[in-house]
Design a protein around this nucleic acid. Structure first.
Length: 563
RNA sequence: CCGCUCGUGGCGCAGUUGGAUAACGCAGCAGAUUCCGAUUCUGAAGAUCGGGGGUUCGAAUCCCUCCGAGCGGGCCA
């Protein structure tokens, strides 16, 4: 990856080292081995475009005051043939480097040359990553946690893809185990109640009490009448589950599609129960990781960092969710051979993380290959107050409700404005607002405004043309420089978002880009007499337009040319 | 009781492997502009970075401790 920003940083590093070498050679600095140092972008632009702490970092190695070392480096520095214009020492010994005009022109030419690939990199080196997200229980409607998980998981996947990973999106369908039995039981009782009256059967405390269960049962009763009342219980429940589960899964797939998420795979837990769960349990037994107690099979978790031992197979013979999950992760990392698995879970599952990783280690899989992103829950806010129930249905707000009320663009963007671990509020009023207050609208508007400039000038007979480096170097107003510097940071920003599993960096980057564009727009008129300057500014506009388009397209958000 | 996550102006939040005067937006105050698309800009004010200790040239960031919030600690998932 030949990023101009990275090249300059590497260049600064070698030039500092060369200068230090010369200073040591002529006795300005004592000759001694020196440690590591940083090149960074200072928070305050007054301190240069790049800054190094070399003089401070070496103070101890060389037994000299930081400022004295810095002075010697500056005096021996050779900036010939670089994008660097000058270097000054400041503060406690910082070496501040200033970029030359040619750097800014080079950035713009780079953006245009890369076109719709600008921002992409090969940082991830094609490593295969499985990102599993949403993975809602198919026993009921999807909720707000699934909404955030969907926006986060899909945009994170997009970011990882742009950073050069081979990304595989996966939805884990828990269509087996305890909760399915509970689902069948709940449907069964509602079915009997539907036909025989409310008193026919009692719903246990821990069954599913949602209205959706009643609706499924009623639909089933309407279709089959009483014919299932007199068959064995197990057969009746199976028929009910076979009736309702596909409907729930279909609804999930419908919602997910509306959300613009395309999964590479819907992985059914039931597939694992055809052998892999048993194999995994057998593997654990063969490794001596288990023992029997009270008729159940236990895993010695305490010997692998756990706080207490865990049940793998219940005394009734059914494997636990934990056992299936071990098999599932073994499937991802060993059977299918992904380099890495990323799971997005609700924060309430955090207790499961250490258990899961411990179990992977115990069966010989490097637990570092599993990363779990814990996501805090979301509260919906409207009119400054927390909203719990849907106004229309009077029931808890589902993902379906959200997607019918709020534009998908807003949902995808706004759920990615905070890092996953922070608990956030989702402002329903803001999400539908068509104004600069709404961050998505603000970013889309910047793009539309640029398109409008091109349209207007085209009507006047002005068509954009290529610009020479000298022309682009004329873009030296502070607003133009800020904007170009921000453009140059995109690739690094995407890599940073990938490294930290935090797509919020990209939404923030885009807001800043739009904001810097508006500042430029107000300070520097594009349509001016000076043809050469106008073309340079059009060139900059095109770079901003294409960059916004690249990002929004990456996040699967509409990029309107007018609005 | 134990464990995990988190505490940054009135509100919402940024702060990368420790770096320069803790950034930005909203509300509010004073003013300018209202010209390519419904704006935008400038200035002032506002923070003991939850409290206290420690590590060092240097801490919002790392360590300890206390306070507060949220969530966990099932043969639930």
């Amino acid at each position: 990856m030949s990023l101009i920003v990275n090249e300059v940083q590497r260049d600064i590093r070698t030039r500092i080292l060369e200068a230090a070498g010369r200073a040591m050679a002529d006795g300005s600095l004592p000759a001694a081995p020196t440690g590591d140092f940083n090149i960074e972008v200072p928070a305050d632009r007054k301190n240069g475009d790049f800054s190094s702490n070399a003089a401070m970092a070496w103070a101890r190695d060389l037994h000299r005051a930081p400022r004295m070392i810095g002075q010697a480096i500056v005096e021996h520095l050779d900036l010939g043939g670089s994008f660097l214009q000058k270097c000054e020492m400041a503060g406690a010994g910082f070496l501040n480097f200033y970029l030359s005009d040619s750097y800014y022109a080079a950035i713009l030419q780079d953006v245009r040359a890369k076109g719709d690939r600008y921002g992409r990199s090969d940082y991830g080196k094609g490593k295969r990553i499985n990102v599993e997200f949403i993975s809602a229980n198919p026993t009921g409607p999807m909720h707000m946690g699934n909404a955030r998980g969907g926006a986060l998981g899909d945009c994170l996947s997009a970011v990882l893809d742009a950073a050069g990973y081979d990304v595989y999106r996966e939805f884990y369908v828990n269509d087996a185990g305890n909760q399915i039995e509970k689902f069948g039981l709940s449907l069964d009782i509602r079915y009997q109640q539907a036909l025989l009256g409310e008193d026919a059967a009692q719903m246990p405390e821990d069954s599913y009490h949602g209205e959706d269960i009643r609706e499924h049962a009623a639909a089933f009763a309407a279709q089959y009448g009483e014919q299932y009342l007199h068959v064995p219980e197990a057969q009746r429940r199976k028929a009910l589950v076979d009736f309702a589960l596909p409907k729930n899964i279909a609804l999930m797939q419908e919602n997910v599609a509306k959300y613009r998420i395309v999964y590479d795979k819907w992985f059914y837990e039931s597939e694992l129960h055809k052998g892999e769960v048993a194999d995994t349990i057998a593997l654990m037994q063969s490794k001596g990781l288990t023992y029997e107690k009270d008729g159940a099979l236990w895993y010695r978790a305490t010997e692998h960092g756990g706080e207490k031992d865990e049940v793998l197979v219940r005394s009734n013979g059914n494997p636990t969710y934990f056992a299936a999950d071990i098999a599932y992760h073994r499937n991802k990392l060993e059977v299918r051979g992904f380099d890495k698995a990323i799971d997005i879970w609700g924060a309430d599952h955090h207790g499961h993380v250490a258990r899961m990783k411990g179990a992977l280690e115990a069966i010989g899989i490097d637990s570092g290959r599993l990363d779990v992103i814990l996501m805090q829950l979301v509260r919906l806010v409207s009119g400054g107050e927390v909203v719990r129930m849907s106004k229309r249905t009077g029931k808890a707000i589902t993902l379906t409700d959200l997607l019918t009320d709020i534009p998908i663009d807003a949902v995808r963007f706004l759920f990615n404005m905070r890092e996953p671990g922070s608990q956030m509020e989702f402002d329903l009023d803001l999400a539908v607002e068509q104004s600069a207050q709404n961050p998505v609208y603000y970013c889309q508007y910047a793009h539309a405004r640029i398109c409008s400039i091109f349209r207007k000038l085209a009507n006047e007979g002005v068509l954009p043309r290529d610009c020479t480096t000298q022309e682009l170097e004329r873009l030296n107003a502070p607003e133009e420089r800020e904007l170009i510097r921000h453009l140059s940071a995109l690739t690094e920003e995407i890599v940073g978002a990938a490294k930290n599993y935090d797509p919020a960096r990209i939404t923030r980057y885009t807001i800043d880009l739009a904001s810097l564009f508006h500042k430029f727009y107000n300070a520097c008129r594009v349509s001016v007499e000076d043809e050469s300057l106008m073309q340079s500014r059009l060139y900059l506009c095109a770079c901003v337009r294409d960059t916004i388009k690249n990002i929004l397209t990456m996040l699967k958000i509409d990029v309107p040319e007018s609005m």
